[in-house]
Computed example of a mutant assay.
Amino acid sequence: MHRETILFLLVVIIMGNSLMTAALDPKPTEQANLPQRPVLQPKETVPVTGNYVLKDPTGTSCIKLSMGVEYVVIEKKKPSYFNLDPTTTKTTGRCADKESVLSLAFLGKGGDLNLTFEKEGNLTYVSKITGHLAPGKGMKNYSGVIEHEKLFPTAAGRSLKCYSQTEFHLSENLRVKIVSLQFQAFKLTNGNFGEEVECRADFIQKIIPIIFGATVVGLLLIAVLSFLIIRDHHRQAGYDRI
């Protein structure tokens, strides 16, 4: 009888120790599921380009987007940075005939980026961008929005390609930079990008050197012509005196 009691007590003690160990030391899968938050960095780096696709309930792609995203937080005139990681980003949203919304949520409840695409006749564009960043417990959250815009206008059935960096000031303390952008909304053929259209920023970057070169050549021609005119004038003046 005493032996059975001792064995029972030993079992109770062993089980109690196991439960305490499990409570104090969660399993790796439980640790992996713990919510994470963005970590702001003091230095700027080039964000990784991610590919994001939004499909309607029938499985048809209504938005296809490729881009790199960097959040810039301004506090006391000092910037901090956070780059969107495609591997920890979830794509959601809604598809409609004239307005579709692509939502990118990342790192648990660490933040999101929402792009609203509108279709007006044969033209598609981004009309609204909202951003939210929650760096972590005890830290300030940042939110902002720009709306009623016609950003990146593109003909329906074509994709817009933009190598240039584009920066949006969503609020006093929050900015979003987008790099290596390519997107198409509403009308995709078999889920693929259509004919590429160059964005305005890339066009301007190409045309500025041409304008600068043409201006320099024009100034040189003016200088040469002025020199020739002045020289001829002096010659004619010399002939008159003789």
Rank of each mutant, 00 (worst) to 15 (best):
V101D: 06
S127E: 08
N33H: 07
K43C: 02
A22W: 15
V69G: 01
T116Q: 10
P26F: 07
V145C: 10
P86S: 06
G110N: 01
I74P: 01
E147L: 06
K119F: 02
L65K: 01
K64P: 00
I14E: 11
Y81F: 15
S100T: 13
D56R: 06
M15W: 10
K78C: 08
N122T: 11
L133E: 08
G108W: 03
R37P: 00
T154V: 15
N122G: 12
V72Y: 02
M20L: 13
L34R: 14
D97F: 03
R37Y: 15
L19G: 08
M67Y: 04
L151H: 00
P153Y: 04
S66D: 12
N114Y: 00
P47N: 03
T58S: 15
A96H: 08
E99I: 11
Y52S: 06
P135N: 05
E30F: 05
N114W: 00
E118S: 08
N33E: 14
N83D: 15
L40Q: 08
V53I: 15
G110W: 02
E75S: 12
A134C: 07
G59K: 10
Y71N: 05
G111D: 06
V73I: 15
L151V: 01
L113A: 03
I146W: 03
L113R: 04
L24V: 11
L104D: 08
V12Y: 05
N114M: 05
N17E: 11
Q41W: 02
V48K: 09
G93P: 08
V39E: 14
G131W: 00
T130G: 04
E149N: 12
F117G: 01
P26C: 08
S103P: 00
L123H: 09
D112K: 07
A23E: 11
S66W: 04
T21D: 14
I146M: 10
E75L: 11
M67E: 05
T116E: 06
M15Q: 10
E147D: 15
K27A: 13
T92K: 09
K109T: 12
T29Y: 09
K150W: 01
E147G: 07
K77A: 11
I14G: 02
G136Q: 07
N141Y: 06
S61Y: 00
E118T: 08
T130D: 14
L19D: 12
M67P: 00
L54G: 05
L104E: 02
P86T: 01
G111Q: 00
N33W: 07
N51Q: 12
P38K: 06
L133T: 04
K137I: 13
K90Y: 04
P26M: 07
S61P: 05
K150S: 15
E70L: 12
V11N: 10
F106L: 05
I129L: 13
T49F: 04
F82R: 00
